[in-house]
């Protein structure tokens, strides 16, 4: 049994490697600036969605303000680049500062609300993220308010081709790091909490500690993705704190499939490509400018009918098929046995 699991694991890892390798070859065979930009955005949001998946998919925590960590990352990088010069060191330092701030805020929110029922965390994150939105709007000397500001970036970020690889690499590394995280004993406890909190508590786990840990990890990863996002745009304004950013993460993880990490990458691809496609249809009919409606309806359908998303549904289908085959085999063997008897 253990051998089988290990084998399946390595097969999965190989499939992931093939997938990532083809993404790495893509810009070499298809040279298009708009494709680079679209893919870079997909990678960045995939990182963000993976961090959300840790909360929602693995531990069953609902956050409606996860975008605030994304915004913290974006603003931190932007402010460092603008005020201290466009060097790689400042870029990394900006991300580091964002990581520290995100860790502090997520720790505080977690300690306050994760003791209570799930909706408290959802409400508190929503409220804090709105507060940060207002702060970004009002603290004009630092953030230039809703108008935002542009800034220059080092060459490796400026160049679409090289930044494609930076983001791809970041996504791959974080994917494997997070996969290791959720497969570790700590990750197993998180899953247990997600499936049955009372049971996990009865087994002697101090639930609150695990929940706070995952909330901090998710906040930190989201801050990194926000920093990359600011680097890509070379511009930041208050929209990075808007509720739409959180909704993006929610859509991506739900559509791709919660609790799989890889689903977040798929979901990010689906949502970003759909966004791109639907907004370009706006010339056909103005309703496509409101592409969020289609995404919202799709999201509702997913929540109600396919709560396990693309990857989850695919896995279920595979398992179902396996079961049916096993049964058929058993029936055949029984029949063969009868004939022989």
């Amino acid at each position: 049994m253990i051998m089988m699991v290990r084998k399946a694991g390595s097969l999965q890892t190989r499939l992931f490697l093939v997938f990532f390798l083809s993404l790495a070859i893509l810009p070499l065979i298809y040279d298009s600036r708009s494709l680079y930009i679209l893919c870079t955005q997909i990678f960045i949001f995939a990182i963000f969605a993976m961090s959300y998946d840790l909360l929602l998919g693995y531990t069953g925590i609902v956050s409606f303000g996860h975008g605030m960590f994304f915004g913290i990352g974006a603003y931190s990088v932007a402010i460092f680049m603008k005020n201290f010069g466009a060097t790689t060191g400042n870029f990394l330092f900006g991300i580091l500062v964002a990581v520290v701030i995100a860790a502090i805020i997520s720790y505080a929110i977690g300690m306050l609300s994760l003791r209570l029922k799930s909706h408290f965390y959802a409400m508190l994150t929503l409220a804090v993220s709105q507060l940060l939105f207002v702060v970004a709007e009002k603290w004009r000397s630092l953030t230039a308010g809703g108008d935002g500001f542009t800034f220059s970036v080092p060459d490796f970020i400026r160049d679409r081709f090289s930044f494609y690889y930076v983001c791809l690499l970041a996504m791959i590394v974080l994917f494997f790091v997070l996969r290791h995280f959720v497969q570790s004993p700590l990750g197993k406890v998180l899953k247990a909490i997600g499936q049955n909190e009372q049971r996990a508590e009865a087994l002697g786990y101090q639930i609150i500690n695990y929940k706070v840990i995952v909330s901090v990890v998710a906040g930190v990863i989201a801050a990194i993705s926000g920093g990359l996002y600011a680097g890509m745009l070379r511009f930041v304004n208050t929209t990075v704190f808007s509720i739409e950013i959180t909704l993006d993460a929610l859509l991506m993880t739900m559509i791709g499939g919660i609790g799989t990490l890889f689903g977040s990458i798929l979901g990010s691809g689906v949502v970003e490509i759909a966004h791109d496609g639907l907004t370009s249809l706006a010339k056909v009919h103005p309703i496509f400018e409101r592409w969020i409606i289609f995404m919202g309806l799709l999201y509702i359908v997913v929540v109600l009918i396919f709560p396990s998303g693309i990857t989850g549904s695919f896995n279920n289908w595979l398992e179902q098929r396996k079961k049916v085959r096993m049964q058929q085999k058993e029936i055949q063997m029984e029949e063969a046995g009868k004939k022989a008897g």
Binding site: V62, S118, A122, M254, G296, I300, V303, P307
Partner: peptide, 9 residues
């Protein structure tokens, strides 16, 4: 959890 998610949708 599904309620929270679906009402937000």
């Amino acid at each position: 959890i599904q309620q929270l998610l679906v009402t937000l949708g």
